[in-house]
Design a protein around this nucleic acid. Structure first.
Lengths: 237, 237
DNA sequence: CTTGACTCTTACCTTACGTCATAGCATAGC
DNA sequence: GCTATGCTATGACGTAAGGTAAGAGTCAAG
């Protein structure tokens, strides 16, 4: 109340001689409105405008505000995805006898994929897909794994280039396509760009990703992150 | 950087003789991690704990954090619903020749329902439902409308009771059931508790809701809001 | 009249920075 | 070597929306 008074947002109708604040019915009604807009996360300044300026375009403000809140919510959704990925990756369980299947890509990455697929389609579907994958011509799988290694090699050699340069982005596009192919076997849906961005976050979250041929290489992690994010964002446009 | 240095979160590895901050590779790596957790909306203090305390239970923290973010996201979803309702209600359009159909319930409420139904099922479905409703035995519709008035009367007479008291909640349950019946005709889905909570917000948002028999009555709006929220929340448990 | 519960004002704390002023330092060009 | 320009350091203050504490005044009840 003190604050609202000071901001001129809600003044008491009467000040007693001992300077106590007394509010009347009109002030209560105004407080109701203030609290309503406050619940909607409007800043107090704007609430003042809404209530005091009769020409204020309320609908426009509400719709603009809605957009902001939508962005915030989508952002939270992305964060939740990232946390899920991170937790899966830290828990490090499952993946009992499938190591061979997923060999060739970072273990945590494979796990993250697998767990997300299980979340969406149920374990049985994923298991069935994996069996199908195991029965797939060896050559095709090997091709994917080999491509993966090749792409990683090329990216390592480009680590001093600008992550947004054409040369890097070309390899990132292959990286994305490769992961998508792999994904497409275990998951009937397409790989979402957001999931790919979540993977980009994983690259800087744990030093295990940054290990290149036995040596810790944080620069590579940062590089991959930037390159993947740039790729994903330009795909989204 | 100054801030992180001051908080002891990230200290430069070297201070030149002119007190310039110099960071080494290890510090860069640490910064990566800091930024990662910062993206996940962790407060800096907690990031410090995560990075400095080897016994920190990261998974627990992540999952606790996930719950917080989930709550935030759900909250935003509710806000977005409320804003939608409010905007529909302000726009005051449509409802051209259906006044008779929706007569007996607050006009804005009917509009909000109708617009939400259109959003979810498309205008044609709603129009079809409305036609069906118009062909429905008049008595049934009248019964709903009469109930609505009766409930409102009873609630007005209870306005000085505790909104959480049994007597009030009994009427609120009827209120909810009545709205649900009406809703059930125009919308194939059930009325969501969240939507009901959004309606509760509408009760305090506009003085037209607070008008009882021609007199402004903000107390009734506040009372309805509390009672509806309490009802919805105990339903959710 | 005293006691306990409010309320008043003022001031400081919170988060994660951003901005500003002032001063020192670094480097490129001359 | 000197200077113009730009980067950095430090400290102070501001932000949003209050929360908390201190110290003083006020109200109603016993």
């Amino acid at each position: 109340m003190h604050l609202y008074d000071q901001l001129g947002l809600l003044k008491p109708s009467v000040r007693t001689e001992s300077r106590y604040r007394r509010y009347g019915e009109a002030e209560l009604l105004r407080l109701q409105q203030i609290l309503f807009y406050k619940v909607l996360d409007f800043p107090l300044k704007e609430i003042g405008l809404i209530l005091d300026d009769p020409d204020f375009d309320l609908i426009k403000a509400l719709e603009g505000h809605k957009e902001l809140l939508t962005i915030k919510r989508d952002h939270l959704t992305t964060l939740l995805n990232t946390i899920d990925n991170t937790v899966n990756h830290l828990k490090n369980k499952t993946m009992s006898n499938y190591e061979e299947l997923y060999e060739g890509m970072p273990k945590e990455q494979a796990e993250a994929y697998r767990n997300e697929a299980i979340d969406k389609w149920g374990e049985d579907v994923v298991v069935r897909s994996e069996k199908a994958l195991l029965e797939m011509p060896k050559l095709d799988i090997e091709q994917l794994k080999t491509d993966q290694k090749d792409i990683t090699q090329k990216l390592i050699s480009l680590v001093n280039e600008n992550p947004e340069s054409e040369a890097v982005q070309e390899q990132i596009a292959r990286h994305y396509a490769n992961i998508r192919s792999f994904w497409g076997v275990t998951d009937p849906t397409d790989l979402k760009i957001e999931t790919y961005k979540g993977l980009a976050d994983l690259y800087v979250a744990d030093e295990r990703y940054t290990t290149v041929e036995g040596k810790t290489n944080p620069a590579f992690a940062a590089f991959m992150h930037k390159a993947m994010m740039y790729f994903a964002d330009s795909k989204l446009k």
